[in-house]
Write a protein that binds this DNA or RNA. Structure first.
Lengths: 157, 157
DNA sequence: GCTAATCCGAGTAATCCACTCAGAATTAAC
DNA sequence: GTTAATTCTGAGTGGATTACTCGGATTAGC
């Protein structure tokens, strides 16, 4: 039910990577994919979603790359996950789908239906916890040992 | 990401139905499927999961059926959803899968890995909200209008 | 103009979902 | 003891999604 796909997983890892190298200017996907051990071409698809939601900016051409559009402490994980997995609201459960504002088979408004209330409570719980975690918190965990100390300096490799 | 499948949805509706008819003795799947408008043979598969987790009891043969093994207020939705969608713990994210107790590519223990901490916080949030909702709460919402008033009496249709 | 990078669309094997189908096993009612 | 109603069980199936790969177009620094 809580299914975290690699889309979410990899996307978050890309964002954490970008957060760690935030001071270091542009960072290319090849760098990220090598450091994280993830397939480049797949990351291209994922980062598109992040760019479409304006979480990262891109520069094309040689020596191009990606960068966060905001400081890591201003990026909430709710935004990140919403960008990656089509938003938490639209990724709906069966009872939400067809019956917008209509009455269900039981005769009362679908909004009153019991299961719907359950999923709604679940979704707000998920949203609130994700909203309470920033990228900065996650990227505070140390990166690869070899990189420690370089992070605040301006490392790109 | 929060994907509620029909497995979860239908299963919950079955449980709510059984809760509403808790006083009325056994209830057959055909009754449930007619009242809820859900395919019987699919429900057979779902209710198997609920029975395996000892949430419902079954009686075979003619005039057989199902019944909750506990009163609705003693059944938490966390149990129900865990039974339906293989438990929230085992339904893991990619970073959980292969690396139990090992160190990850980064050299520190996988438990310290950032994404893992994120998913862990998410999962406990989900579990806690589900754990705070009982079947009784959900089944308190009125059933089909025609059935009101019959509920406490011993209705089977 | 070469090269490094971002972009973009299509294709694909594997897996899961939401069922259906066929039938065996069990039991109450006649 | 036959019939009918029911729970059980395993297998199959069309569609969707996932997790990618492939091929190439575009853009820019040197």
């Amino acid at each position: 039910m809580l299914h975290i796909s690699t889309r979410g997983e990899y996307g978050v890892r890309v964002m954490i990577d970008l957060a760690r190298h935030f001071e270091g200017g542009l960072r290319s996907l090849t760098e990220i994919s090598e450091d994280e051990g993830l397939p480049v071409q797949y990351l291209e698809q994922l980062i598109k979603r992040l760019r479409d939601k304006d979480l990262v900016a891109s520069v094309r051409g040689a020596h191009g790359g990606y960068q966060l559009t905001r400081t890591p402490d201003a990026i909430r994980m709710s935004e990140v996950l919403q960008a990656l997995e089509g938003s938490l609201e639209t990724y709906t459960c069966p009872s939400d789908k067809d019956t917008q504002g209509q009455t269900c088979d039981w005769g009362h408004r679908i909004d009153d239906c019991t299961t719907r209330m359950l999923w709604a409570r679940l979704r707000t719980a998920i949203f609130q916890t994700l909203d309470g975690i920033t990228l900065a918190e996650l990227s505070a965990v140390p990166a690869h040992p070899a990189l420690r100390g370089l992070l605040a300096g301006g490392a790109s490799a």
